[in-house]
Amino acid sequence: MDEHKSVRLHVASVESTSDTEVVCAVRNIGGEASVGMIFRSSVSPAIAVRLIEILRYGRSFSILDQAYTAKVTFTGPGAAGIAPGEVLVSTPE
């Protein structure tokens, strides 16, 4: 059986939002995040977003290792509800 290990991203700041997309700076505080993963807000679990882009130093990456900070883009219903200070936790698909 494949056990899901949660990834935790701390939202440091929000740069832009729309109804279905948010661009923010995050710090990975646990696990290895990768493009395509789904995250839920620890503050409002009804918010579920998919990680679609990771940028570090202006370059695109497919993963974000623990302890690193990056500018990321999430998409999904409720994306505009993500706020600085909250933690996004990965969920199995």
Rank of each mutant, 00 (worst) to 15 (best):
16 S>I: 05
2 D>L: 15
17 T>I: 06
23 V>Y: 01
14 V>G: 01
40 R>K: 14
25 A>V: 15
9 L>A: 10
25 A>T: 13
63 I>E: 15
78 G>L: 10
23 V>W: 03
3 E>D: 13
59 R>Y: 15
32 E>G: 12
48 A>M: 06
93 E>D: 01
81 G>T: 05
81 G>A: 08
60 S>D: 03
85 G>F: 04
31 G>P: 09
54 I>M: 11
69 T>V: 14
14 V>E: 10
27 R>I: 14
60 S>N: 14
25 A>K: 11
12 A>Y: 05
88 L>I: 10
59 R>P: 05
13 S>M: 12
19 D>Q: 00
41 S>M: 00
30 G>E: 04
21 E>G: 06
37 M>E: 00
77 P>V: 02
31 G>K: 06
91 T>D: 06
28 N>D: 09
15 E>N: 11
39 F>W: 08
91 T>A: 02
29 I>G: 00
21 E>H: 03
62 S>M: 14
24 C>H: 07
6 S>N: 13
37 M>H: 00
66 Q>Y: 12
55 L>G: 00
69 T>S: 11
35 V>T: 07
78 G>E: 04
93 E>N: 11
68 Y>C: 09
89 V>M: 12
53 E>W: 05
80 A>H: 08
51 L>K: 03
3 E>G: 00
43 V>I: 07
33 A>L: 00
91 T>R: 10
62 S>A: 07
70 A>G: 06
76 G>I: 01
17 T>H: 00
23 V>R: 02
93 E>G: 09
46 A>C: 10
59 R>A: 15
89 V>E: 13
87 V>C: 07
57 Y>L: 13
27 R>G: 05
82 I>D: 06
62 S>H: 12
60 S>V: 15
58 G>P: 04
2 D>V: 14
83 A>E: 12
91 T>I: 12
43 V>K: 09
84 P>Y: 05
18 S>H: 09
45 P>R: 01
27 R>T: 14
60 S>Q: 14
14 V>F: 02
7 V>I: 13
26 V>A: 09
50 R>T: 06
61 F>K: 08
86 E>V: 08
61 F>E: 13
22 V>R: 05
31 G>H: 10
14 V>C: 03
90 S>R: 09
75 T>R: 01
52 I>A: 06
67 A>K: 08
41 S>Q: 08
43 V>N: 05
51 L>A: 00
1 M>W: 08
70 A>H: 03
91 T>E: 04
33 A>V: 07
18 S>M: 02
33 A>S: 09
33 A>R: 08
26 V>T: 06
51 L>S: 00
56 R>I: 15
36 G>M: 00
90 S>L: 12
63 I>D: 13
66 Q>R: 14
63 I>V: 15
36 G>F: 10
15 E>M: 02
35 V>H: 10
6 S>H: 15
56 R>D: 10
70 A>I: 00
57 Y>W: 14
70 A>T: 13
57 Y>I: 04
71 K>M: 05
55 L>H: 12
85 G>Y: 05
80 A>I: 03
34 S>K: 15
37 M>N: 04
6 S>G: 09
6 S>E: 14
89 V>K: 03
57 Y>D: 14
